[in-house]
Design a protein around this nucleic acid. Structure first.
Lengths: 106, 106
DNA sequence: ATAATAAGACACTTAATGGTGTCATGTCAA
DNA sequence: TTGACATGACACCATTAAGTGTCTTATTAT
Protein backbone atom coordinates (compact mmCIF):
# COMPACT_ATOMS: atom_id res chain seq x y z
CA UNK A 1 0.00 0.00 0.00
CA UNK A 2 1.34 3.36 -1.00
CA UNK A 3 0.47 6.18 1.38
CA UNK A 4 0.40 9.39 -0.63
CA UNK A 5 2.51 11.04 2.03
CA UNK A 6 1.13 14.58 2.09
CA UNK A 7 3.56 15.63 4.77
CA UNK A 8 2.42 19.19 5.48
CA UNK A 9 5.65 20.10 7.26
CA UNK A 10 5.46 23.68 8.46
CA UNK A 11 8.91 23.59 10.04
CA UNK A 12 10.55 22.62 6.78
CA UNK A 13 8.46 25.15 4.88
CA UNK A 14 9.73 28.09 6.92
CA UNK A 15 13.32 26.87 7.05
CA UNK A 16 14.15 28.37 3.66
CA UNK A 17 14.84 32.13 3.44
CA UNK A 18 13.24 32.38 -0.01
CA UNK A 19 10.05 30.90 1.36
CA UNK A 20 10.11 33.21 4.37
CA UNK A 21 10.44 36.11 1.95
CA UNK A 22 7.46 34.80 -0.01
CA UNK A 23 5.44 34.68 3.18
CA UNK A 24 6.48 38.22 3.96
CA UNK A 25 5.48 39.44 0.52
CA UNK A 26 2.12 37.75 0.73
CA UNK A 27 1.54 39.26 4.16
CA UNK A 28 1.86 42.66 2.56
CA UNK A 29 -0.70 42.15 -0.19
CA UNK A 30 -4.05 40.51 -0.38
CA UNK A 31 -3.15 38.39 -3.40
CA UNK A 32 -0.16 38.16 -5.70
CA UNK A 33 0.33 36.34 -8.99
CA UNK A 34 3.32 34.11 -9.61
CA UNK A 35 4.93 36.53 -12.04
CA UNK A 36 4.59 39.37 -9.53
CA UNK A 37 6.22 37.31 -6.79
CA UNK A 38 8.97 36.17 -9.14
CA UNK A 39 9.89 39.80 -9.82
CA UNK A 40 11.19 40.08 -6.25
CA UNK A 41 13.78 37.37 -6.68
CA UNK A 42 16.82 36.71 -8.79
CA UNK A 43 15.87 33.13 -9.49
CA UNK A 44 13.57 32.03 -12.28
CA UNK A 45 9.83 31.53 -12.26
CA UNK A 46 10.06 27.74 -12.00
CA UNK A 47 12.07 27.91 -8.80
CA UNK A 48 9.64 30.35 -7.18
CA UNK A 49 6.76 28.15 -8.25
CA UNK A 50 8.35 25.18 -6.53
CA UNK A 51 8.82 27.10 -3.32
CA UNK A 52 5.17 28.09 -3.46
CA UNK A 53 4.25 24.44 -3.96
CA UNK A 54 6.07 23.58 -0.73
CA UNK A 55 4.29 26.41 1.08
CA UNK A 56 1.01 25.19 -0.33
CA UNK A 57 1.74 21.66 0.84
CA UNK A 58 2.15 23.09 4.33
CA UNK A 59 -1.09 25.00 3.75
CA UNK A 60 0.72 28.26 4.39
CA UNK A 61 -0.44 29.46 1.01
CA UNK A 62 -3.65 29.10 -1.01
CA UNK A 63 -4.00 29.82 -4.70
CA UNK A 64 -6.66 30.33 -7.34
CA UNK A 65 -6.56 30.80 -11.06
CA UNK A 66 -7.78 34.11 -12.44
CA UNK A 67 -7.65 34.04 -16.19
CA UNK A 68 -4.16 33.16 -17.24
CA UNK A 69 -2.58 33.97 -13.91
CA UNK A 70 -2.42 32.10 -10.62
CA UNK A 71 -2.84 34.28 -7.57
CA UNK A 72 -1.42 33.31 -4.21
CA UNK A 73 -2.56 34.38 -0.78
CA UNK A 74 -1.15 33.79 2.67
CA UNK A 75 -2.74 31.44 5.17
CA UNK A 76 -0.83 32.03 8.38
CA UNK A 77 -2.85 29.61 10.52
CA UNK A 78 -0.39 26.69 10.34
CA UNK A 79 2.23 28.92 11.97
CA UNK A 80 0.29 28.34 15.15
CA UNK A 81 1.84 24.90 15.25
CA UNK A 82 5.30 26.44 15.43
CA UNK A 83 4.17 28.83 18.10
CA UNK A 84 2.79 25.99 20.17
CA UNK A 85 6.04 24.12 19.82
CA UNK A 86 7.99 27.19 20.87
CA UNK A 87 5.81 27.96 23.85
CA UNK A 88 7.02 24.82 25.56
CA UNK A 89 10.60 26.11 25.48
CA UNK A 90 9.84 29.70 26.26
CA UNK A 91 10.56 29.27 29.94
CA UNK A 92 14.01 27.96 29.09
CA UNK A 93 15.21 31.19 27.59
CA UNK A 94 13.31 33.70 29.71
CA UNK A 95 15.44 35.86 31.99
CA UNK A 96 13.00 35.22 34.80
CA UNK A 97 13.35 31.47 34.38
CA UNK A 98 17.12 31.68 34.40
CA UNK A 99 17.11 33.59 37.68
CA UNK A 100 14.63 31.19 39.20
CA UNK A 101 16.74 28.26 38.17
CA UNK A 102 19.84 29.82 39.74
CA UNK A 103 17.96 30.20 42.99
CA UNK A 104 16.78 26.63 42.94
CA UNK A 105 20.27 25.39 42.24
CA UNK A 106 21.69 27.11 45.31
CA UNK B 1 39.40 34.83 0.59
CA UNK B 2 37.49 32.02 2.18
CA UNK B 3 34.80 33.10 4.63
CA UNK B 4 34.35 30.31 7.15
CA UNK B 5 30.61 30.66 6.78
CA UNK B 6 29.39 29.89 10.30
CA UNK B 7 25.76 30.22 9.33
CA UNK B 8 24.01 29.72 12.66
CA UNK B 9 20.64 28.99 11.08
CA UNK B 10 18.07 28.34 13.79
CA UNK B 11 15.23 27.78 11.33
CA UNK B 12 17.10 24.99 9.58
CA UNK B 13 18.18 23.52 12.92
CA UNK B 14 14.62 23.04 14.14
CA UNK B 15 13.29 21.85 10.78
CA UNK B 16 14.41 18.28 11.41
CA UNK B 17 12.29 16.04 13.68
CA UNK B 18 15.34 14.24 15.05
CA UNK B 19 16.81 17.55 16.12
CA UNK B 20 13.55 18.65 17.68
CA UNK B 21 13.53 15.40 19.63
CA UNK B 22 17.09 16.10 20.78
CA UNK B 23 16.00 19.52 21.97
CA UNK B 24 13.12 17.94 23.82
CA UNK B 25 15.36 15.39 25.49
CA UNK B 26 17.83 18.05 26.57
CA UNK B 27 15.00 20.16 27.95
CA UNK B 28 14.20 17.28 30.26
CA UNK B 29 17.66 16.84 31.72
CA UNK B 30 20.36 19.17 32.82
CA UNK B 31 23.05 17.45 30.75
CA UNK B 32 23.19 14.35 28.61
CA UNK B 33 26.12 12.52 27.04
CA UNK B 34 26.15 11.56 23.38
CA UNK B 35 25.76 7.85 24.12
CA UNK B 36 22.75 8.57 26.33
CA UNK B 37 21.09 10.65 23.65
CA UNK B 38 21.85 8.05 21.00
CA UNK B 39 19.98 5.44 23.03
CA UNK B 40 16.72 7.25 22.25
CA UNK B 41 17.08 6.84 18.51
CA UNK B 42 17.28 4.04 16.02
CA UNK B 43 20.10 5.64 14.07
CA UNK B 44 23.75 5.28 14.93
CA UNK B 45 25.91 7.44 17.14
CA UNK B 46 27.59 9.20 14.22
CA UNK B 47 24.28 10.43 12.88
CA UNK B 48 23.16 11.77 16.24
CA UNK B 49 26.52 13.45 16.65
CA UNK B 50 26.04 15.23 13.34
CA UNK B 51 22.61 16.47 14.33
CA UNK B 52 24.08 17.79 17.55
CA UNK B 53 26.77 19.56 15.54
CA UNK B 54 24.08 21.37 13.57
CA UNK B 55 22.30 22.32 16.80
CA UNK B 56 25.59 23.52 18.19
CA UNK B 57 26.23 25.60 15.08
CA UNK B 58 22.89 27.29 15.76
CA UNK B 59 23.99 27.69 19.38
CA UNK B 60 20.94 25.73 20.50
CA UNK B 61 23.23 23.32 22.27
CA UNK B 62 26.46 23.65 24.24
CA UNK B 63 28.80 20.82 25.12
CA UNK B 64 31.72 20.01 27.38
CA UNK B 65 33.96 17.01 27.77
CA UNK B 66 33.83 15.14 31.05
CA UNK B 67 36.35 12.35 31.04
CA UNK B 68 35.70 10.23 28.01
CA UNK B 69 32.20 11.48 27.43
CA UNK B 70 30.84 14.66 25.87
CA UNK B 71 27.86 16.10 27.65
CA UNK B 72 25.32 18.27 25.90
CA UNK B 73 23.01 20.86 27.36
CA UNK B 74 20.22 22.93 25.85
CA UNK B 75 20.56 26.63 25.17
CA UNK B 76 17.07 27.73 24.19
CA UNK B 77 17.89 31.41 23.75
CA UNK B 78 18.24 31.35 19.95
CA UNK B 79 14.62 30.19 19.73
CA UNK B 80 13.74 33.75 20.57
CA UNK B 81 14.64 34.60 16.98
CA UNK B 82 11.93 32.26 15.73
CA UNK B 83 9.46 33.70 18.16
CA UNK B 84 10.23 37.21 17.00
CA UNK B 85 9.73 36.14 13.41
CA UNK B 86 6.42 34.51 14.27
CA UNK B 87 5.12 37.44 16.25
CA UNK B 88 4.91 39.50 13.09
CA UNK B 89 2.45 37.02 11.58
CA UNK B 90 0.49 36.34 14.71
CA UNK B 91 -2.21 38.85 13.79
CA UNK B 92 -2.72 37.05 10.51
CA UNK B 93 -3.98 33.87 12.07
CA UNK B 94 -5.78 35.26 15.11
CA UNK B 95 -9.55 34.83 15.09
CA UNK B 96 -9.93 38.39 16.23
CA UNK B 97 -7.86 39.64 13.31
CA UNK B 98 -9.89 37.61 10.84
CA UNK B 99 -13.13 39.12 12.10
CA UNK B 100 -11.69 42.62 12.07
CA UNK B 101 -10.49 42.12 8.54
CA UNK B 102 -13.96 41.00 7.43
CA UNK B 103 -15.44 44.14 8.92
CA UNK B 104 -12.90 46.36 7.20
CA UNK B 105 -13.54 44.64 3.90
CA UNK B 106 -17.27 45.41 4.04
C1' DA C 1 48.41 -3.81 32.04
C1' DT C 2 44.54 -4.79 29.60
C1' DA C 3 39.94 -4.68 28.00
C1' DA C 4 35.94 -2.13 27.30
C1' DT C 5 33.79 2.24 26.55
C1' DA C 6 32.93 7.07 24.47
C1' DA C 7 33.61 9.77 21.04
C1' DG C 8 36.17 12.23 17.07
C1' DA C 9 37.39 12.02 12.27
C1' DC C 10 36.86 10.22 7.80
C1' DA C 11 35.34 8.22 3.60
C1' DC C 12 31.44 6.84 1.43
C1' DT C 13 26.34 6.16 -0.34
C1' DT C 14 21.70 7.56 -1.22
C1' DA C 15 18.14 10.62 -1.45
C1' DA C 16 16.35 15.20 -1.23
C1' DT C 17 16.76 20.07 -2.36
C1' DG C 18 17.17 24.09 -5.06
C1' DG C 19 18.01 25.56 -9.10
C1' DT C 20 18.02 25.53 -14.48
C1' DG C 21 15.93 25.33 -19.39
C1' DT C 22 12.33 23.87 -22.64
C1' DC C 23 7.91 22.70 -24.40
C1' DA C 24 2.87 22.73 -24.35
C1' DT C 25 -1.40 24.98 -23.20
C1' DG C 26 -4.75 28.38 -22.06
C1' DT C 27 -5.84 33.34 -22.10
C1' DC C 28 -5.74 38.12 -23.30
C1' DA C 29 -5.05 42.06 -26.47
C1' DA C 30 -4.41 44.24 -30.95
C1' DT D 1 -6.67 35.48 -35.61
C1' DT D 2 -2.37 36.05 -34.39
C1' DG D 3 1.12 37.14 -31.11
C1' DA D 4 2.49 37.86 -26.51
C1' DC D 5 1.96 36.46 -21.83
C1' DA D 6 1.37 33.34 -17.57
C1' DT D 7 1.76 29.14 -16.05
C1' DG D 8 2.02 23.98 -15.72
C1' DA D 9 4.69 20.05 -16.50
C1' DC D 10 8.89 17.92 -17.36
C1' DA D 11 13.61 16.47 -17.67
C1' DC D 12 17.80 17.52 -15.99
C1' DC D 13 21.93 18.93 -12.99
C1' DA D 14 24.78 20.22 -8.88
C1' DT D 15 24.95 20.50 -4.12
C1' DT D 16 23.70 19.37 0.37
C1' DA D 17 21.80 16.40 3.90
C1' DA D 18 21.24 12.27 6.41
C1' DG D 19 22.66 8.21 7.18
C1' DT D 20 26.24 4.26 7.27
C1' DG D 21 30.76 1.82 8.63
C1' DT D 22 35.59 1.85 10.10
C1' DC D 23 39.67 3.39 12.33
C1' DT D 24 41.96 5.93 16.04
C1' DT D 25 42.49 8.02 20.44
C1' DA D 26 41.47 9.00 25.17
C1' DT D 27 39.61 7.35 29.42
C1' DT D 28 37.86 4.29 32.79
C1' DA D 29 37.42 -0.11 35.31
C1' DT D 30 39.20 -4.70 36.43
Amino acid sequence: MITTDQERDVFVAIADPTRRKLIRLLAGSEELALYELTAHFQMGRTAVSKHLAILKEADLVRNRKIGRETRYRLNAAPLQEVKDWLSFYEEFWTERAAILKDILEE
